[in-house]
């Protein structure tokens, strides 16, 4: 694992998803699939085998008709920073092949597909089910191979894959910035899901940069992160006005009281360990 910083001012790319705006339309999933050469199967209804780097889950408040409510939870890789935000992410810390590591210069959990030998330890370690295993070689029927993007290397049977925060888009934006001898602007590096989202529920940027929208949004009263109590320190924040949604984000039991502190929706007193 590499612990040095690449650049003087480290970036920390992250995402804020407004669940009150999300309509569960699935654009993010499709945009992601097209952007990242995600393989397709004839039967995509078996969700154990279907690969979707960002998956939109659906939850309900459990109340009976007509007080029922639903909420959609888009779940990309959370790009966990680990307990002290030192790169000790659940998946990175268990990979025996160093096929996945934590990029201290961007905060992105990166990976090398060809280096993975398919032990799936990272999948077991990931509390967010963000990692997917290629049980078969991807097959692109008819001329579908023609639609593959050269920006992301197609994976092979036997390796684990997951959301990369469209890192190749950062690389492309940087190429352009180098050419024009300037820095990458906030809107130049946006993930495919962010770009596609019709309701504008997803905001993406550098969580360390006060000029970026996510910097302010992550401190919103409505902000919380998934399974905060595990101290995985995810870089994906969620926003919701709805108390039951925020509770669901950390699997609160009905008798538990969340503190409601912005960005750290933790339990009073007892920690999660």
């Amino acid at each position: 694992m590499n612990t040095e910083s690449n650049e003087t001012r480290a970036k920390k790319f992250g995402m804020v998803i407004d669940l009150d705006k999300c309509t569960g339309c699935g654009s993010c999933m499709v945009a992601c699939s097209a952007e990242n050469n995600i393989p397709v199967r004839k039967d995509e209804s078996d969700k154990l085998l279907s690969i979707t780097w960002i998956r939109v889950y659906r939850i309900t408040n459990g109340k009976d008709f007509p007080d029922t409510e639903i909420c959609y939870f888009p779940r990309p890789c959370q790009h966990c920073g680990g307990k002290h935000d030192d790169g000790h992410s659940p998946c990175v810390s268990v990979c025996p092949a160093t096929a996945t590591d934590y990029d201290h210069s961007t905060g992105i959990v990166s990976q090398i597909y060809t280096r993975c030998f398919g032990c799936r330890y990272c999948m077991a370690a990931c509390p967010y089910h963000a990692r997917y295993f290629n049980w078969w070689d991807p097959v692109w029927p008819a001329k579908l191979e023609e639609s593959l993007s050269p920006d992301v290397s197609p994976r092979m049977r036997g390796v684990v894959e997951k959301c990369s925060f469209c890192f190749h888009r950062y690389q492309l934006a940087r190429d352009k910035a180098y050419q024009e001898e300037r820095d990458v602007e906030e809107m130049e590096y946006q993930t495919a899901c962010t770009q596609a989202c019709p309701s504008g529920a997803i905001t993406f940027g550098d969580l360390n940069n006060p000029d970026h929208a996510v910097y302010t949004l992550k401190k919103d009263k409505r902000a919380f992160r998934l399974l905060e109590r595990l101290h995985t320190n995810p870089k994906v924040y969620y926003l919701s006005e709805r108390e039951w949604v925020r509770r669901a984000g950390d699997n609160y039991l009905s008798n538990e009281e969340p503190t409601g502190a912005p960005g750290a929706y933790e339990l009073k007193g007892k920690g999660g360990h």
């Binding site: 590591d101 934590y102 210069s105 090398i112």
Partner: peptide, 13 residues
């Protein structure tokens, strides 16, 4: 030159 080999994505896609 940069003090670090960089993470996977630095050179892998």
């Amino acid at each position: 030159t940069m003090g670090s080999k960089g993470a996977c994505f630095q050179c892998h896609k």
